[in-house]
Amino acid sequence: MIGNETPIWRLLRSAGGADDDIRAAIEEIGEAPAAALMADEVASRCEPPPGGSSGIQPYPSGGSSGIRPDPPGGSFDIQLELAGAGRSHPYVLSVSASGVTASAATAEDPAALIVYDLVALARALYGTGVHGEARVEVNWPPAERLGEAIASIHALARAVESVLTACRSAETNLDRLATRFGSDKYGTMHWYTPHYARYFSPLRDELVRVLEIGVGGYHDPASGGASLRMWQRYFRRGLVFGLDLFPKTGVQGPRIRTLAGDQGDPAALRALAEEHGPFDIVIDDGSHMNAHVLVALRELFPHVRPGGLYVVEDVQTSYWPMFGGGRDVPGTTAEFAKTVIDGLNHREFADPGHVPSYFDGHVVAAHFHHNLMVLEKGDNHEQAAPSWIPRR
């Protein structure tokens, strides 16, 4: 912690300012820890190049340096040098069709070298506007083996492009991200991401805190987290929290934190919100039990920032008895949703004795899609129609 801030939040916050602000944040965090955070970020964003015979790999240790064609499933190393004020921080990005990892080390014979200034990389990853470019050098083999390098030059170009793209941009297509990370929010069970793109895009480049209830994977501590990784990639300046009934110690990411707790426990939800909120977005993809959904709404909606969003997925369980639902059954998500419509217009009630609820006063818009509810947070105190218009 730095004061009341975590290192990553300090870095995210500074990246929207001047270079001196970013430099000061890096000094407070420490160059090495800041470099480690950014290297992990690059690895998490890096889209693996396609596998097959176009894969490339360094020559074995002690052999000729350079690149060569490799059979399907091959991998290669790219050296990422992060230049600080007084020293360079080397990382090896091991790239294959199955994924990308980063380790603090120096590659013996890297396929390519990418050099990025730490301040420039922080701005490129987490800031806005113009950013500096990296320096790239290809580690070519001796002339007598140049033909092999030429044969794999397009694979190397794709690999280098993948790393550079990860360094400087965010992915904006949520449908694609859901598919890439294996989330069921698009293309299979649900079709939520087109709606999310509509509501979340204004916040995409902002400093945000996103909480999703339900990590997935049940008892397995390393299973689940597909949508957390999707949100981490989409909100490039965001912190992503995942709440699950089971500990999810194996679900990790540079800006992901998982928390164990019961969404049906009001005290646990209040403690979570006090420690990690306020949130800009809350997404309930948890137990889908109607009673739990309403507990979470009551406890967490007050901890959503003005202008933020509260989303409930899988509203269809309002109609399923197994989840405490049924057609016109009190206490379901759908029945609550019907009260939201009244609450939006509470200042127009002809009943002068009505006492507005918290939701009456702070839901400023409600959007309903198939199995999806989106509530916008704000101050719902728009003036009522003139009093001289007859009500009765």
Rank of each mutant, 00 (worst) to 15 (best):
V282W: 03
H292N: 14
D19T: 14
P306Y: 08
D220E: 14
V95S: 03
G74R: 06
G187F: 03
V100W: 05
M373Q: 03
V240R: 04
G129Y: 13
T165Y: 03
I67H: 07
W140F: 14
P247G: 02
R168T: 05
S75L: 11
I22E: 12
D285Y: 05
P142W: 10
A296S: 11
S44R: 14
S162H: 01
A39W: 07
A222Q: 09
E133L: 15
W9T: 14
G187D: 01
G361C: 14
S201Y: 00
A178H: 01
H370S: 09
Y218G: 06
W9V: 15
A350T: 11
G147S: 10
S65A: 15
R180N: 00
L344F: 06
G74W: 06
P142A: 08
A43Q: 11
S54F: 11
R198C: 02
D117K: 04
F235Q: 06
L243G: 02
A149Q: 08
A267C: 00
M289F: 14
N139H: 07
A124C: 12
H288M: 08
L121I: 09
Y196E: 01
H219S: 12
H369M: 00
G17K: 10
P221F: 08
F76A: 14
A178S: 10
L156D: 02
W231C: 08
P390W: 05
P356I: 04
Q383T: 11
S14P: 09
V210I: 13
G73V: 03
H89Q: 04
I153L: 13
G147A: 10
L118W: 06
V251D: 05
L372R: 08
A112N: 07
R68A: 10
L177Y: 01
A105H: 09
G99Q: 03
S54I: 14
K377L: 05
M373S: 11
R168V: 02
A107N: 04
V355I: 13
K338Y: 07
A111D: 13
E81S: 14
L269S: 09
P254T: 12
A97H: 13
G242K: 06
L82V: 05
G84Y: 04
A260M: 11
P278A: 00
H346V: 06
D109C: 05
M38W: 11
V315F: 11
R298P: 00
A34R: 14
E161P: 00
Y192E: 07
D284H: 04
M1H: 13
H346G: 09
S75G: 10
N173H: 03
T128A: 13
S162I: 02
D244G: 09
K185T: 05
E137W: 09
E31S: 15
G16Y: 10
Y91V: 08
V312I: 15
L174N: 06
D20M: 12
K377T: 00
L297F: 12
Y218N: 13
P194M: 04
Y59I: 00
F241A: 04
L113H: 14
H367R: 07
T258H: 10
I67A: 06
A268H: 03
A271P: 02
L37C: 11
V130S: 13
A178Q: 01
A102G: 03
R158M: 12
R168D: 05
V208L: 03
A111P: 00
V240I: 15
T101W: 00
I281P: 02
